[in-house]
């Protein structure tokens, strides 16, 4: 079991926030980069650039999920969903982190589907 003090130190807190925020930021990066790369892919014919970009972006929420999951595992068993102690609060943040990473992982995939169907030069 991890000491509650752990959940008050900066490193742990940074991990918890990373779990929550990295997924959505990766999705934003993917969308922005994809939009920018479409003209490039069309003019050079290097369609693979689009796929590589997205594959790289998918790594971020995957990693964030693992991080959040690790945090979830170390929260003390006494943590409850709405407890007022740092353990419960971290438990909450870890779950939100896992869910948000999973969600935005799927969001990146959803936005990747059209590029198998459409042509960048349409």
């Amino acid at each position: 079991m991890t000491d509650v003090q752990t959940f008050r130190n900066g490193r742990t807190i940074a991990h918890l926030w990373t779990g929550i925020l990295a997924g959505p930021l990766a999705w934003a990066l993917d969308e922005g980069m994809s939009y920018v790369l479409v003209p490039h892919a069309c003019s050079t014919g290097h369609y693979y650039v689009l796929h590589v970009m997205t594959a790289l972006c998918l790594l971020i929420p995957a990693a964030a999920f693992l991080l959040a999951w690790r945090m979830y595992v170390i929260t003390p068993p006494s943590s409850t969903e709405d407890g007022g102690d740092a353990g419960s609060r971290s438990h909450f943040m870890a779950i939100i982190g896992m869910a948000s990473s999973a969600l935005f992982f799927l969001a990146i995939i959803a936005e990747a589907i059209p590029r198998f169907i459409l042509n960048p030069c349409d």
């Binding site: 934003a28 939009y35 948000s100 935005f104 590029r115 349409d122």
Partner: peptide, 29 residues
Amino acid sequence: IATGFLGFGVWVHHMFATGIAGMGRSFFS
């Protein structure tokens, strides 16, 4: 939280009629 983030990734749907290229706009769709 998800709505807050996704809300920043759809703006081009107001510009579909401006002739933005097909694949580019598919992300926003």
